[in-house]
Design a protein around this nucleic acid. Structure first.
Length: 296
RNA sequence: GGAGGGGUAGCGAAGAGGCUAAACGCGGCAGACUGUAAAUCUGCUCCCAUCGGGUUCGGCGGUUCGAAACCGUCCCCCUCCA
């Protein structure tokens, strides 16, 4: 095998998980999760996390590593995954990263450096009463260089810039691993959206409400509960919306999310794209396998 | 038959003489994003085009320098009374 690493990317609900199992099976791989929300224990149905009995004995890493109230960041992800890749490689296995969290995945593929201070909520609290315009003024005055490279319409980014000491902007970011294959899975937009809508209903049938209710009852309100499929249900439990309204929002947000994912993967990664054949997913799997063999 | 309400861009919905090719939301498309990323943010979305131009607000006809907005008339929809 000439690849150090295979990465499978694509919008939510295209079939990444299924492909990953097949490839792991065929090329003796171990799977590393690349979905930020699947780090969390208890977020199973809503994140479409693979079930224990579906794993086919294949080792899965970075699933269920956090409790819902805990937080991580790309930096942790990057260090852990770099380590995991080493381990897996040492065992003579192929690391296969599967997921949809663009930034996290890019931080593995490329040599992203994170020299700045870690994020912390104090600043957010400190500037609570400030309008974004005011924050922008402060930033421009105190760190004009940094202001140039930040999206000034985006309060969150302005806040982060405010807590950075220097600009850690990298002019050029090099690939970190020499031989990586990034497989992009795609599907006609219309069909993708249809799949997403259907999958939301499947999740409901599998017990999504119960899963989310449990988080709600525990009073957990964190980054994890901001996940699609979760945050929309909280207002329903509070009696502020109907179930129907909440489900419409879940579908909508999932579709919008899928679109954002596609934008990232298309423009930030050098992926080899495969169009998924819905009627015959095995055919898609075959195509990918053949491609890998040919390139190996 | 009588009394009201209404017909606005793909949909929902503002607008009530010039600032309007027409707010806003949805839907659609494109994009940004190096420590919250399933998050956060931006742009486009009548037609042709680079400036710019051409057609719009149920139909037709008026009033007016100027109308989606005012008047007349016709068509359609809804509610109530018969």
């Amino acid at each position: 095998m000439m690849f150090d690493l295979i990465m499978i990317v694509g919008p939510t609900a295209v079939g990444k998980t299924r492909l990953s199992l097949e490839l792991a099976q065929a090329f003796s791989g171990e799977i590393i999760n690349g979905d930020a929300m699947q780090f969390y224990r208890g977020l199973d149905i809503g994140t479409a996390k693979i079930k224990e009995e579906e794993k086919q004995g294949i080792k899965h890493h970075l699933l269920d590593m956090l409790d819902p109230h805990e937080e991580t960041s790309v930096v942790d992800y990057q260090t852990i995954v770099r380590e995991k890749i080493k381990e897996i490689t040492k065992k003579n296995k192929l690391p296969i990263i599967v997921g949809g969290s663009g930034l996290y995945l890019s931080s593995i593929l490329f040599d992203y450096k994170f020299p700045g201070p870690s994020r912390n909520d104090d600043l957010t609290k400190k500037y609570e009463g400030f309008t974004t315009e005011m924050l922008v003024e402060i930033l421009k005055k105190t760190k004009p260089e940094l202001a140039k490279n930040t999206d000034l319409a985006n309060r969150r980014r302005v806040l982060r810039a405010l807590e950075k000491e220097n600009d850690d902007f990298q002019e050029e970011i090099n690939p970190y691993y020499p031989n990586v294959l990034v497989i992009g899975l795609d599907l006609e937009r219309e069909k993708l959206y249809e799949r997403i809508d259907n999958r939301v209903m499947d999740m409901v049938n599998e017990g999504l409400l119960k899963e989310v209710k449990s988080l709600y009852d525990q009073g957990i309100f964190s980054q994890a509960t901001m996940a699609i499929g979760y945050k929309e249900l909280f207002p329903y439990f509070r009696g502020e919306t109907t179930l129907e309204e909440a489900l419409v929002l879940i579908k909508r947000n999932s579709r919008r999310y899928a679109k954002r994912q596609l934008t990232w993967f298309r423009n930030r990664m050098n992926a080899v794209w495969f169009k998924v054949d819905l009627e015959n997913f095995d055919k898609t799997i075959q195509e990918v396998k053949e491609y890998i063999k040919k390139r190996s």
